[in-house]
Design a protein around this nucleic acid. Structure first.
Length: 948
RNA sequence: GGAAGUAUAGCUCAGUUGGGAGAGCAUCGCCCUUACAAGGCGAGGGUCACUGGUUCGAGCCCAGUUACUUCCACCA
């Protein structure tokens, strides 16, 4: 083995071997355990968040697989409608082409090309992370099977009247020319203005103060072209007499009513609100209440129409108004029109005033442009009935969220859930299975033939399919069961559904988790006809942020590619990667600066195992993670530590008698101790994993490996291996191999590559046959292997050694300098432990002589340490400075005195003694006795030295 | 406006029925001791955000305050 851990050398071939051997497939044996991966965007690449979640999933799956479960980790990718279409459109743009130039079919072909070309990126990354997913079951949301499932669900919901089509006000994205759901809208706080506009009253009507106009306040003057009413509060005395009267809408000369509605707030603006049902969600509701016509004045680009479209309040075309608009605004962008219209009002002397206004503006989360409420025909899922069942499942504990507080978030959203707009005016996605005849009548079916047959439509009836596609999340909502072959009743569904745990980020609880629960429970039933949940537990991870706690994003240039953590990257390549496609050179410059400052020498390779271990160790519940390179380095060092510890074990065991041949085995105290320690580690690790406390699982392993196994046990084996007799050596070699082999199995779920590599060499020494660690049994806790006496005896040995080391350290005595020690106040147990462990003591504390003082023997002037009641004396002559030792004693004395004061204070408090539990009081008494004894000894030592 | 989360060592964070304030990194001292300098040994460092309450006892429970973060809603 190399002297230094070198991850590149070991990771490359291992994954392929595992996959080739079929170890990732379900074993077909044992209780089933399944996880579906949240499907990443097929054309995307993995970021740290993916690596984080997938590491957790893989750790769980490997743990359960080794523990005898029939495990399935279902893998696949998502077609990610908008995101993917956007990328390909941008490529076309570079060639001065638009998707319309290509036409629908050709454009979709192009996307498939791109998918086939770039689709391997993400799966390649997943392989590098060591994910033990079953690649043979890999699915894509637009596969035939999954598309059939989508179709089936759509048609069924339509037949159940849970899907409907209607002209509603939707969030329109003027850049992508599509409707988006409420969830895809991102609200941002902006400074804006409130324009006060004068609307003339109809003839013969005046305000209370005699004006022939009223003033409305609006943040969106350009939509006034679509006003169909003015609302005032029914209790507003200023305007009572105007209710039922009309104003004449400036610029378009439309006569529109003044009406009473609670929506109008007397405190806000002027108390008069213009109502534009076709371009504002509140106004839409007001319009419906008062049956106002809706006048749509914007086109798909959010530019002013030449002629407005007029609808009744139910969305039917209407001739209530002419639709005629001032020609000068036609084709004008909404924001340009805003200025123009304000200017026009001003010119007419009808602009009352402009006030500053803090407001929240809706943006498309993908496009980044301001969303426009628009009247369009869209498809909706009526979610209320589905939500009811889905809410109950969480209330009843059928589905548990970890951490639990996310259940509140889920409930609050589900409680007033809005119908889900599922149609998108995109080309990339599942086309809506609806056809229209020439009169516009809609028919829904699995395909055109079915529609014709079902509705008796002959060949003479021309049908055209709906142009729209479904929201990406519609197909992802079916993921747990569509990937397992539904609507067929497959064995996989029987075996692996419901899945056990879903590992995902809180940001998609509404987008995905909630909708999965709704859809799955509606379509899947268990053998008793009871709705089946998609998963029993939702483990919600935090977000991985950059070192400053900022969200990682391409535009900020702080994204970290997990592969760069694994393989390393030089600065120049990293800079190019982060700024490669930047449009704005200014931003790129800033990113370059920050990146160069953060990684002046690029990034060193750390290996997959170090990355995985870091992510695991950081996975404490309900908290975002600020990425810290230092942590990664630390855990890379941990890998190196394990590597070198293993080298030590192999050096001392390979080609030597480890007891396989059956010779006599004598276990040392250290052997017994480490075996017991290991058992306790197994218990702690399993508990942590079973409770999704991955941070604690990692911590447990780290602590055992470094602080127990390496720092103590390996050192304790040296005296035996170098000086022990044959049976002792055999016993220790046996234990070394035994513990290391078991430890590797324990660590494997977190660090698959390094453990496999080392295991291949260690397993034969233990007589274990098997091709791979990943299909070996997972360690089980066995209380019988914990030897209580050995644990306390070795604790004494450690205390002894620490006492000597402390004096060495504080007195700057070189570790290489052999020392003689005297022991005073040696009890019976001390004496036994001393006799049994002299080699350990002299070996680890580097002692050349240990003598026990009898009561009548006096000691030379010494530095002293305490091991319980026993005193360890190191004669000072020629070694130790008097003042230094006095200072050291004083420090110890101060600490003991302080502790003692606290304990004594407690015990002298009558209330404590009378009210605290017996056990607590006893513990304090013991502590007091110990401290008093220690204090007395320290004081005597101090006096002795002072008297010198 | 409603709700949730967070606040502990210089930094990043653990601390699960209330009874010893901890880890890693960083810092300081000594050491190339035959697994490991990506190391070993030793040491220093905290008014647990603030105020009050419950309790014999509070980092932990309760009430309030402040700061930061997030989600939802509203915004003429």
């Amino acid at each position: 083995m190399d002297k230094t851990y070198n991850p590149q050398n070991i990771e490359s071939d291992i994954y392929k071997k595992w996959d080739d051997q079929g170890y990732f497939k379900p074993s077909g044996q044992g209780q089933s355990y399944s996880i579906v991966i949240p499907p990443p965007n097929v054309t995307g690449s993995l970021h740290m968040g993916h690596a984080f979640q997938q590491t957790i999933m893989d750790a769980l799956i490997r743990y359960k697989r080794m523990d005898g479960y029939n495990t399935l980790w279902q893998v696949g990718t998502d077609h990610a409608g908008i995101a993917t279409q956007m990328v390909v459109e941008r490529q076309l743009e570079a060639q001065n082409l638009s998707r319309k130039d290509l036409g629908r079919d050709k454009f979709i072909d192009k996307i498939w090309d791109w998918k086939n070309h770039s689709g391997g990126t993400i799966t390649g990354q997943m392989r590098r992370l060591g994910n033990s997913v079953d690649w043979q079951r890999e699915r894509f949301t637009m596969d035939k099977g999954l598309s059939d499932a989508v179709m089936e669900v759509f048609v069924t919901l339509y037949e159940q009247d849970l899907i409907y089509r209607g002209k509603r006000l939707v969030n329109w994205d003027p850049k992508f020319h599509t409707a988006i759901s409420d969830l895809e809208v991102e609200n941002k706080d902006k400074k804006g203005h409130l324009w006060h506009l004068r609307y003339p009253l109809e003839e013969g009507v005046t305000t209370l103060d005699g004006k022939d106009y009223i003033v409305v306040a609006t943040t969106r003057p350009e939509t006034m072209l679509g006003d169909t009413g003015i609302a005032v509060n029914p209790n507003d005395e200023r305007y009572q007499h105007l209710i039922g009267k009309h104003v004449v809408l400036p610029l378009v000369n439309r006569r529109i009513p003044i009406l009473a509605d609670d929506h109008a707030d007397m405190e806000k603006g002027t108390g008069c609100v213009k109502i534009t049902p076709a371009h504002d969600f509140n106004d839409y509701e007001v319009g419906k209440r008062h049956q106002l016509p809706m006048v749509s004045v914007l086109d798909a680009n959010a530019q002013i129409l030449a002629t407005a479209e007029v609808y009744t309040f139910t969305g039917e075309p209407s001739d209530a108004y002419s639709g005629e608009l001032p020609s000068e605004y036609a084709g004008m962008d909404r924001f340009v029109a805003r200025k123009a219209i304000v200017a026009q009002f001003e010119a007419m002397g009808m602009l009352d005033k402009i006030a500053d206004n803090d407001m929240t503006i809706p943006y498309g989360d993908r496009s980044g442009v301001v969303i426009e409420p628009m009247l369009t025909d869209q498809w909706y899922v009526r979610v209320a009935p589905l939500a009811e069942v889905a809410t109950k499942a969480v209330e009843d504990g059928e589905i548990k969220f970890v951490p639990k507080q996310y259940e509140n978030m889920y409930f609050s959203w589900m409680r007033d859930i809005q119908d889900w707009c599922i149609s998108r005016q995109l080309w990339w996605g599942h086309r809506i299975p609806a056809w229209y005849d020439q009169s516009g009548k809609v028919y829904v079916g699995r395909d055109e033939a079915e529609v014709r047959q079902k509705h008796g439509l002959g060949e003479d009836v021309k049908l055209s399919q709906d142009d729209d596609v479904l929201d990406t999340w519609f197909s992802s909502a079916l993921w747990t069961f569509s990937t397992m072959g539904w609507p067929e009743q497959t064995d996989d569904l029987k075996t692996f559904h419901p899945t056990d745990v879903l590992v995902t980020g809180f940001d998609i609880i509404f987008f995905w988790v909630a909708r999965m629960i709704m859809m799955t429970m509606h379509f899947l039933k268990d053998e008793n006809g009871k709705p089946q949940v998609p998963f029993k537990t939702v483990y919600v991870t935090g977000l991985i942020r950059d070192e400053n706690g900022d969200k990682m994003s391409k535009s900020k240039g702080n994204v970290i590619d997990p592969l760069d953590m694994i393989d390393g990257i030089d600065l120049e390549t990293l800079l190019n990667k982060r700024t490669g496609n930047m449009m704005q050179p200014k931003i790129a410059e800033g990113i370059k600066k920050r990146t160069a400052k953060e990684f002046p020498d690029g990034i060193e390779p750390h290996g997959t195992d170090a990355l995985r271990f870091t992510l695991t160790a950081l996975a404490s519940t309900g908290r975002d993670i600020n990425w810290d390179m230092k942590r990664l380095e630390g855990y890379r060092n941990f890998c190196n530590k394990l590597w070198n510890a293993s080298r030590y074990v192999l050096m001392n065991t390979e080609e030597q008698d480890c007891g396989l041949g059956g010779g006599e085995l004598e276990l040392s105290l250290a052997d017994k101790w480490i075996l017991g320690q290991f058992e306790q580690t197994v218990k702690a690790f399993r508990d942590a994993m079973d409770n999704y406390r991955f941070d604690m699982a990692a911590q447990t392993i780290y602590e055992f490996t470094w602080n127990q196994f390496c720092d103590w046990y390996l050192e304790l084996t040296k005296p035996v291996l170098f000086k022990g007799n044959e049976a002792q050596q055999r016993g220790t070699r046996h234990t070394l191999v035994n513990v290391l082999e078991s430890l590797l199995r324990l660590m494997h779920p977190l660090m698959p590559f390094i453990t496999e590599t080392i295991w291949q060499r260690v397993a034969p020494l233990k007589g274990v046959k098997g091709d791979s660690i990943m299909v070996q049994p997972f360690p089980q806790f066995d209380q019988n292997k914990v030897d209580g006496d050995a644990m306390s005896d070795l604790e004494w040995v450690k205390q002894f050694i620490l006492a000597v080391r402390n004096i060495r350290g504080e007195m700057d005595i070189a570790p290489s300098k052999p020392l003689s020690v005297l022991l005073r106040n040696v009890g019976e147990t001390d004496l036994r432990r001393l006799q049994e462990n002299k080699t350990f003591l002299s070996g680890l504390a580097k002692l050349e002589q240990i003598d026990v003082l009898t009561d009548d023997q006096s000691a030379p002037m010494s530095a002293t340490g305490l091991v319980g009641e026993m005193e360890v004396l190191i004669p000072m002559a020629g070694l130790i400075d008097k003042d230094a030792e006095l200072a050291r004693i004083q420090k110890a004395l101060d600490k003991v005195t302080g502790d003692l004061q606290r304990v004594a204070g407690k015990l002298s408090n009558e209330k404590f003694v009378s009210k605290a539990p017996e056990a607590v009081i006893a513990k304090e008494r013991d502590k007091q006795a110990e401290l008093e004894s220690a204090k007395a000894k320290l004081e005597k030592q101090k006096a002795d030295i002072e008297s010198l």
